[in-house]
Design a protein around this nucleic acid. Structure first.
Lengths: 208, 208
DNA sequence: AATTCCAGCGAACAGTTGTTAACTGCATGG
DNA sequence: CCATGCAGTTAACAACTGTTCGCTGGAATT
């Protein structure tokens, strides 16, 4: 299926990824609007001008980072929202999944949280677009559930948006509690689960 | 009560406020970590070195901006959460209040949203502290309500946090819809109200 | 084997940044 | 009325920024 890349293309993609990785690392302590192109190339060990072979600007690089951070997340959302089992079990499993993801890709999560309302418009818009896609996917999944009978399309979208926002908020809290004690992380997990429980209760008594 | 400031102190506070205002303006199109001190003084029309008479750094200025943006908000929160009337009425009024606030102080709201997870640690911490204060105040207010009977302290704090997060999320959405049509803002208002309704329903059926 | 292509390099550019130092003029307190 | 305090100034600093241009070496194509 996939044609093996030539030495040329392979090397290019390698430095390109190195630039993305270095940028992501530098962005743990600043925001994208203050990230300099020279800063990134210096971290990789490459000439400043090499940057232009891969990205038009740091904003451009930011947009690609959004896709890297969020693009691969759709299957996870899908599997979460269509999981079976008791309601409480599903909530606990979801919260665990979030915690695990934050632990596996902390820099990605931080980047999204930081740039969602950050100073670079194209990046903001890309995040917005991706999150809207999530909300849409969750909406269709919810529409399939039998509990969603009698729900209007608008209300389903409202609920989906609430879920997506909640996921992100929980991820942020896990991130903040990351350098803290294990006890603090458990506290965050409990809180996140309780929030989802309350939303779930509200959902089951909606217009009845 | 308050001693009339001398000409000296008055002039100082004037340029100090001018610096804060100019910074807030510049921060509509970038984030704090990329805000230069010279940029701010240039916007005010004052020498770069004058900056140091008021702030140690731009991060310092950021912390004070947080207090300006959030400090004056406590009475509003208080009045909202202790308001009387039907549940739906209160929700609609709350959403209206948020919309009005965003319209009156868009730059402040944008600043908080942007720097809540932004690249400057002291500012992040100050916002966190202020939001925690809000959550605490809401918690006490909720504890006074008769509907909160049987609620644990932890769950009350969870609910309060959910409310605070929800307020902020709604404020952000109003902000994003600000350059859009009036119809779009109405859509946001409806969504925000529906979210609060769902949370309210969940609250009333909590552990019963 | 000869030729084209192109990722990365090195040097240079004008402009910007934060920070220091020593100053000036004016409101203030004795 | 005179001496002190201090908000704001001017000048200079080394360090850094994004972007340009022409170059080079080796992979890719023919």
């Amino acid at each position: 299926m996939s044609h093996t890349l030539g030495i040329r293309q392979a090397q290019k993609q390698k430095t390109r990824q190195a630039l993305l990785d270095a940028a992501l690392g530098l962005l743990e302590e600043q925001s994208l609007s203050s990230l300099g192109l020279r800063e990134v190339t210096r971290a990789v060990g490459v000439a400043p001008t090499a940057f232009y072979r891969h990205f038009r600007s740091t904003a451009d690089l930011g947009v690609e980072l959004v896709q890297e951070a969020l693009g691969s997340l759709h299957p996870m959302i899908e599997s979460t929202v269509t999981a079976d089992g008791d309601s409480d079990e599903r909530i606990v499993r979801t919260v665990e999944l979030i915690a695990r993801h934050v632990d596996a890709y902390p820099a990605h999560v931080r980047f999204i949280a930081r740039e969602r309302h950050g100073g670079v418009q194209p990046v903001r818009e890309e995040i917005r677009r991706q999150l809207a896609r999530f909300a849409e996917e969750v909406t269709v999944a919810l529409a399939g559930h039998p509990e969603s009978e009698g729900w209007s399309q608008d209300d389903l979208l409202m609920l989906a948006g609430l879920y997506v926002d909640q996921m992100l908020a929980s991820a942020c809290q896990f991130l903040e509690a990351r350098e803290g004690a294990a006890e603090e992380r458990d506290q965050v997990a409990r809180m996140a689960a309780q929030r989802l429980r309350l939303i779930s209760i509200g959902r089951h008594h909606w217009k009845s």
